[in-house]
């Protein structure tokens, strides 16, 4: 302090004033959008790859929240207190939300002005942000070198002994049961519910755990609570990289789409759609693929992907060929009744 001259003091004061002024002007312009996603380890990658650069380019701040929740969306629409500007949505939720009028129409002139997205990704109330699949995962060290190949093997506790894990939901589990019972993948819908539950009866006693979250799926396998179970495809590659004895089979997987949607009553819909546009950059898409094997339909992306990596993606042609196409429409209509039946079935 003694060394500090009066001039230094003056400079400091000036600098401080300038900083304060900058802060103020930035603040005056700043809009911060709230983007609701599934959180988890991916949130860090998203921040690095998309959110920070987006803010740097546009001056629009991004605040991310989690988790994806239809009831929360409903509550916020109904109370008129919408926190989110953009949210991820599963297929069935999407249909429910559209039916109830909880979403804002996408202005494609902002998001995709050059009309480069394939029609499947470009819908009235949402844009496909990613694709994923619910598949069988198994412990490679538990079956003496044998590997299960199908849902029939999942049900075969003699050849592949050990506890199983399934999601606590009828959604997809009914399809899996029918596939195990020999129904062809393209003849699943409308579901033969009776047949499905009858088939599920056979496996119920061997299911040690009924998972409800993504984290649980792999935890059950890693902890040895189950030797075979259903997982979202993207959960397993990181474990394999760590050397954990787990692998997945694409055969009989449930190929699903998830969406970006702008909730009704969002405070910054325009800024939210600008952010959606930023998510279509193929180079950034490629970066994200390193961390998350759930690619969307960003134009030009699949051409850039390394062929080895491409094999681990739900949209790889070989994988698409053996999965079944999950039908959210069917579930939107029957979910309530079937969930009640499912819960009752679990109790017996």
């Amino acid at each position: 302090m003694t060394d500090m001259t009066r001039r230094d003091m003056g400079r400091l004061a000036l600098g401080g004033a300038a900083l304060a002024a900058m802060g103020k002007s930035a603040h005056a312009q700043a809009v911060t959008i709230t983007v609701n996603g599934s959180g988890g380890s991916l949130a860090k990658s998203l921040e690095r790859i998309y959110e920070k650069p987006f803010t740097a380019e546009t001056g629009i701040g991004v605040r991310s929240t989690a988790p994806v929740s239809l009831p929360k969306l409903k509550a916020m629409v109904e109370t008129g207190n919408m926190e989110w500007d953009l949210t991820e949505m599963g297929g069935a939720d999407m249909i429910e939300a559209i039916k109830n009028g909880w979403l804002t129409e996408i202005d494609w002139s902002i998001v995709d002005p050059d009309n480069k997205l394939p029609p499947i990704a470009r819908q009235k109330y949402g844009m496909v942000t990613s694709t994923f699949s619910t598949v069988i995962a198994y412990r490679t060290d538990k079956f003496g070198g044998k590997a299960p190949k199908s849902w029939a093997d999942f049900w075969d506790v003699k050849s592949f002994p050990g506890p199983r894990a399934l999601q606590d939901s009828p959604v997809q589990n009914l399809e899996f049961a029918l596939l195990a019972d020999g129904v062809p993948a393209d003849k699943l819908y409308p579901l033969d519910v009776e047949r499905a539950f009858k088939k599920l009866d056979q496996i119920k006693g061997n299911v040690a755990a009924w998972w409800t979250t993504g984290a649980q799926q792999v935890q059950l396998l890693v902890d040895g609570e189950a030797v075979m179970g259903t997982v979202w495809n993207g959960r397993v590659p990181p474990l394999k990289k760590e050397g954990k004895p787990v692998d997945i089979i694409w055969n009989g997987g449930a190929l699903q789409l998830s969406y970006w949607a702008v909730p009704k009553g969002a405070k910054h819909p325009r800024e939210a759609m600008l952010y959606m546009k930023s998510r279509l950059d193929p180079d950034k898409g490629l970066q994200l693929l390193q961390d998350s094997p759930y690619p969307g339909f960003a134009p030009g992306l699949i051409e850039k992907v390394d062929p080895e990596l491409a094999k681990t993606l739900p949209i790889h042609p070989d994988n698409v060929a053996v999965q079944y196409r999950f039908d959210p429409d069917y579930w939107s209509e029957h979910r309530q009744k079937l969930t009640e039946r499912w819960a009752a079935w679990l109790l017996t």
């Binding site: 929740s69 239809l70 009831p71 409903k74 429910e96 939901s169 979910r335 309530q336 969930t339 009640e340 819960a343």
Partner: peptide
Amino acid sequence: LIDLQVHQMNDW
């Protein structure tokens, strides 16, 4: 069950 009704069955 209340949780299931709200979160899975959307039946408030």
